[in-house]
Amino acid sequence: MKLLIIIVCLLASSQLFSSQQVLILATTTSTENSGLLRHIHGDFEKSTDIKIKVIPKGTGASMQLGRDGNADILLVHAPDQEREFILNGYGDKRVEVMHNDFVIIGPSDDPANVKGEKFAAKVLAKIAKEGATFISRGDNSGTHMKEQKLWHLSKMKLISKAKEIITAKGKKEIKFMRPVGGWYRSIGRGMGATIHYATEVQAYTLTDRGTYYAYHHDTKRSKPLVILSEGGSDLFNQYSVIAINPSKHPHVQYSAAKKYVAWITSPRIQKKIALYKKNGKTLFYPDVL
């Protein structure tokens, strides 16, 4: 134990000497993977002299970092859970920054015959009725949260797998909703890996458009999955920033986080987001511009 403390102190001393202010931003893997943050963050670091450390996790894991006080600000995409997060006092408020949309992709021969159906909840109901294979992220990411909401809207019979954990405020139930049947596979992987899996077994899945384009562009698969449902109002994908509430965690860098919120919602940066393209395709649409 003594030894551990000595090592910690030695290693810590090297940290303490760096006076540079570093803002910890926990975000979803999709925003990090899109390259957008890398594209715009240089501007913030230059104009404010605050460095940004981006921690790419799923939305669920990012929020947990926020609850633990290990992140200063979140950029996430699960509005219902975000509201609960703020209701519980962990964040000050959620500020909508940008949006894009989810799409449902599947094999081009479309065994469940869903092509043309705009509403995602109806598409999922059809897939379930046909018993066509559907791959779920199953990792408590924003996309997984969206998928569960869509299953809820589809009015299919769902089972909820719940586990009880004990928190400081008493028992809390973590619930995952899923439809019944062997055609539904929950794989617990990132978005790209999930598209890869779905392509291998020629199954349906829900993905954000940006990751789908990036994956589609990058690999020449013999039977690539195609977009079968898009544009439905229930496929909207909203990204928001939340500064962690300093009254919960006094050490968080609240003023730097506020600067970040003001910066990312400023017309100049919103324009930069709108103009950002990958492989010739627009990935995010600003909300404040």
Binding site: L4, I7, V8, C9, L11, A12, S14, Q15, L16, I24, K53, I55, D68, G69, N70, H249, H251
Partner: peptide
Amino acid sequence: GRMGIFGSFKLLFTIPGIII
């Protein structure tokens, strides 16, 4: 982590943290 007893050292998400 910030809630931990060594939280004030700010070692989370750093190389020295990994080394520990």
